[in-house]
C-alpha cells in the first residue's frame, strides 16, 4: 500500500477561505508542492498581494510578507537584495499585477530580479466583488462593466506574458492553465522551472496561470472550467514565451 497523493508540507494547516471551486487553491497547492520537492521550504520567503489571495500569508508553510496592492515585486526585491540565497516569490492576482502593480512587475523583470512570480489571471477583481480588471475580456460583464467590457472605452485586455517576454531580464515567462488536469500538471512543471531559474540565479521568472472565479463570473465551478477554455485561452494563448537556452 503506497501513498500516491498526499497533502504537501509546503502548505500550512489552515483551510483556504476561497470560494468553492476557485482554482486559487490548486495553484497554492502546486507552489507548496514545488517548494517542498525542490527542498527550499526553509529558505522560501513569499509575498502575498492584495486581492483574494491576500490571506496567502496564512496558507504557505514558509516566511511570508503581505504587500501593499501592486507592490509585491518591490517588496520581493527588497527581500532578495538582502538575502540572495533566499528563495523569494510573489503570488499575485491580475488586479494586483496587471493594474496597479504594472510598474513594479515590469521593473522587477527589467532589473532581472532573481525572484519568481506566480501570476493568477482570472480576468476579474475577485475580493472586491467582481469589478472589471485590465484582463477582463471584451464583452465580459463585470460590476464596473455592466454592459460588458467595451474596447472603445476601456481598451483591449492586457496580455502580460507577451509584454514581459520582451524584457531581457525576464528569462522565464510561461502562461499555463489549471482548468483541467493536463493543464494543472503543466502548470506545476512551469512553476518548478521558474523556481529553478531563480535557484540558478539566471534572472526573473513568471508563470501566468489562467484561473477561474465562479462567484464573480456568476456560473458554477464546473461551468467556469469550460468558460475559461472557450473564452480565456483563445485570447490568452498558452505556452512558453521565454526560457533560458538549455545548458546555460
Amino acid at each position: 500500500m503506497a501513498v500516491v497523493f498526499d497533502r504537501t508540507q509546503g502548505l500550512a494547516e489552515k483551510q483556504f477561505h476561497y470560494c468553492p471551486g476557485c482554482t486559487h487553491g490548486i495553484i497554492h497547492r502546486l507552489v507548496g508542492e514545488v517548494l517542498e520537492e525542490l527542498g527550499v521550504l526553509g529558505d522560501a520567503i513569499g509575498v502575498a498581494p492584495v486581492g483574494c489571495s491576500v490571506l496567502a500569508y496564512d496558507y504557505f508553510n514558509c516566511d511570508m510578507h503581505e504587500a501593499a496592492h501592486g507592490r509585491a515585486p518591490a517588496v520581493a526585491t527588497g527581500i532578495k537584495r538582502v538575502l540572495p540565497e533566499g528563495v523569494v516569490f510573489t503570488y499575485q492576482g491580475d488586479g494586483d499585477l496587471a493594474s496597479i502593480g504594472t510598474a513594479e512587475i515590469i521593473h522587477a523583470a527589467h532589473r532581472g530580479e532573481k525572484i519568481t512570480t506566480i501570476f493568477v489571471n482570472n480576468a476579474i477583481y475577485g475580493m472586491t466583488g467582481g469589478q472589471m480588471a485590465p484582463t477582463t475580456l471584451i464583452g465580459q460583464k463585470a460590476t464596473t462593466a455592466p454592459y460588458g467590457r467595451d474596447a472603445v472605452d476601456t481598451g483591449m485586455p492586457l496580455r502580460m506574458s507577451e509584454m514581459l517576454a520582451t524584457i531581457d531580464g525576464a528569462v522565464f515567462v510561461e502562461r499555463t492553465t489549471v482548468h483541467n488536469v493536463a493543464g494543472i500538471r503543466k502548470t506545476k512543471k512551469a512553476i518548478k522551472k521558474a523556481f529553478e531559474v531563480q535557484l540558478a540565479g539566471l534572472g526573473f521568472g513568471i508563470v501566468e496561470i489562467l484561473s477561474t472565479c465562479p462567484t464573480n463570473w456568476g456560473i458554477t465551478p464546473v461551468e467556469s472550467l469550460k468558460w475559461l477554455e472557450e473564452n480565456m485561452i483563445p485570447y490568452y494563448p498558452l505556452g512558453n514565451f521565454r526560457t533560458p537556452e538549455e545548458g546555460k
Binding site: A68, A74, V75, T77, G78, I79, R81, L83, H107
Partner: peptide
C-alpha cells in the same frame, strides 16, 4: 552593501518594507 534605484518612490518604500522585514 546594496544600492537599488527603484522605478518610483512608491516602489522604493516597498523595497524598504521587504528589506526591513529581513532585519537589515
Amino acid at each position: 552593501g546594496v544600492f537599488v534605484q527603484a522605478e518610483s518612490e512608491v516602489a522604493a518604500i516597498n523595497m524598504i518594507y521587504g528589506a526591513a522585514g529581513t532585519g537589515a
